[in-house]
Amino acid sequence: MSDSPNKSFTGKAAGFGQLLSRGWAVLLAATFLAVALPAAAYDEGGAKAGHAKHIDAKGDKCVRDEAYMRRNHMDLLKHQRDDTMRKGIRTTQYSLKNCIGCHANEKTNSVIGSTDGKDNFCQGCHNKMAVKLDCFECHSSKPKAASGDAMHPIVAPAAQPGDKDKQSGLSGKMRWQMQAKLDSVNKGEVVK
């Protein structure tokens, strides 16, 4: 056995072995950089270029501030969905319907569906970040009032009394602001 640095190889194989171990090191370094550099470039709150174009929504502000929502909207939605689904808690502050109510694009009346991602709120950012949206397989991407026209019932029956939501007289924004205040007061929070 020759005493080359790679003890398991001899002769010609030794050179190959050295190349292999050097090659592995290069591969490892390249992979590390490929993952670490973009992560380092990721900025908290997305203030720099690299996120989707800012799209205006109805109402003066969202349920939480922009930086928080960019990072954590998925956790809010996930918590809310279990509350609504499993327990029947239908507060409007974090409900998906309410998000859509404000964020639906004025022209397309939807939060998804544009091909260039420039017009529709959810899809725009998700396209840019390359994160697949699963919500709208089942959830309607349009706010409530508009989608009634698009349904195709088997037979169109006479309008049913008592159909409408009793709170529908209030606008979406007013409704959630009222509910949000009620929730915060119940929780003992100071409302901002």
């Binding site: 319907k97 859509i100 089942c138 959830h139 309607s140 349009k142 409530k144 989608s147 698009a150 349904m151």
Partner: peptide, 8 residues
């Protein structure tokens, strides 16, 4: 498509 927003 076009689900009722109350019934996903």
């Amino acid at each position: 498509h076009d689900q009722n927003p109350d019934v996903p």
